[in-house]
Amino acid sequence: MESPSNHRPIPLQEATLLKVEGLSKRFGRRWIFRNLSFDLGLGDCLVVTGQNGSGKSTLLKTIASLTSASEGKVILPPGDPRVTIGYSSLESSLYPELSCREHLQLTGDLRGIPSRSNELLEKVGLANAASVHAKELSTGMKARLRLAVAIQSNPLLLLLDEPGASLDSNGRALISDIVAEQQKRGSLLIATNDPSEFFYATHALELN
């Protein structure tokens, strides 16, 4: 499984990595957002802002296909979305009884890619907590592990929901590194209300 011949880079053939056309979402009679359209290409970083309940997280979930759109469509990067899309959110939980390394082994095996657990745990600053179970991690450490899972496949599209929440200054530097790397590889979408994260934006979208 670790044979290098099986893990060649996927060539970037499409300039547009994400295309959103007339996307709308409603819960019952309440529209969360309506008729959103935008494209993201290589190097783009769209920062989505808005008040609580404005639909930032729902927009990311809809793009990640975790929830269905009420109207419109999302055209994702070519390839298996398990590999081409990375998603990190405070809402997604971890298995309390699995360690950091076991999480990366599980998601790597499920995605059909090498777990890269040592490399990723080193990168997100959890090398010393590789064998610690998720239930024993602090909130900030859990956020770092979620980031490691999100970037495990070197995705073409990275979706980050409130990435800086619960992270310390080192963690925020990590976000900055991840954003810079992702902009060279593909595009990303960040939902946030943290002004320090507006700095990453090449495009901005405010939801009301």
């Binding site: 996927i10 590999v83 081409t84 298995y95 076991e102 499920l110 070197n154």
Partner: peptide, 27 residues
């Protein structure tokens, strides 16, 4: 910057089912 990683399709169903099974055993 590292390029996107290509999936290994060898025995993918077996590997995935085994992963879920082992995850349940561990949990």
């Amino acid at each position: 910057m590292e390029p996107p990683i290509r999936q290994d399709q060898t025995n993918s169903w077996y590997r995935e089912i085994r992963s879920v099974f082992l995850k349940e055993i561990l949990s």
